[in-house]
């Protein structure tokens, strides 16, 4: 069942925003991994604060999206809130504060370095970074049909509602949700069969040809050098 909305996309939150979106995603992914892991391994607040200026500098390039960024930082993660609050009131307040800043800095890096590129560019870059092809194929198909699946769920919900369904705590409600899922599994099962047939009939051999290739530009090199030097100094001053 192909719906008209199939082409619609779910995109990364900061796709195309600011200076960082113009950089080579390969460079950004590698730098992100270096920075995120360094902060993740931090043992005290000072080490985390060493990277805060860099994170804020990155943020400045997308300041027009402040509302989006704040929303994702503060409200997206219920688990973080849970950990921070339980630490503040039932555990060690210092741990709570440390975790809050570690998480905030890493998420800022993730938002500004990863989600400023489109999903497709990120997948393409992962291909160049030698992520196994089969895994990327799954990722690609997942992304390609995510919206279709979401759409189908909404239609089933609408259908149930139009027959008087109101969600509440009852076996009937859980059964209805199970039917939605069964229905999604079934439709996706058949959809995947069709996808597969379409692929092999077009001579698909298990890898996607890529039309556009990344080229490392001057800006990429400058950005990478700057970030690595910052990282080196911060690690030397605060970690070693």
């Amino acid at each position: 069942m192909d719906t008209a909305t199939e082409g619609e996309k779910v995109e990364t939150p900061l796709n195309g925003e600011g200076l960082l979106s113009r950089l080579d995603p390969r460079v950004k992914i590698v730098l992100f991994l270096v920075l995120a892991w360094t902060v993740a391994l931090a043992g005290n607040l000072l080490q985390v604060f060493a990277f805060l200026p860099l994170a804020l500098l990155f943020y400045a390039t997308a300041y027009r999206k402040t509302a989006t960024i704040l929303k994702l930082l503060l409200f997206a993660d219920f688990f973080l809130l849970f950990v921070v609050l339980t630490q503040l009131f039932l555990g060690s307040p210092y741990e709570g504060v440390l975790i809050f800043f570690k998480s905030t800095v890493i998420v800022l890096f993730s938002l500004l370095l990863l989600t400023t590129s489109s999903v497709f560019d990120l997948l393409h870059a992962l291909h160049h970074l030698k992520v196994p092809n089969k895994l990327l194929q799954i990722t690609f198909f997942f992304y390609r049909y995510l919206f279709t699946v979401k759409d189908q769920l909404q239609l089933a919900e609408k259908s149930a509602k139009s027959r008087g369904f109101i969600p509440k705590t009852s076996i009937q409600t859980y059964k209805t949700y199970a039917y939605f899922m069964g229905n999604l599994l079934l439709k996706s099962y058949f959809k995947s069969e069709n996808v597969y047939k379409a692929l092999i009939s077009r001579g698909f051999k298990g890898y996607f040809p890529v039309f556009r290739h990344f080229e490392l530009g001057k800006l990429d090199v400058i950005f990478a050098l700057f970030t690595i030097i910052y990282w080196g100094v911060a690690v030397w001053r605060f970690y070693l």
Binding site: M1, Q152, K161, R163, Y179
Partner: peptide, 16 residues
């Protein structure tokens, strides 16, 4: 909605 029924344009979207 329990008193007003709706038959979708596409039955595939309606039947679950």
């Amino acid at each position: 909605r329990g008193r007003m029924g709706y038959v979708f344009q596409n039955p595939d979207d309606q039947l679950f």
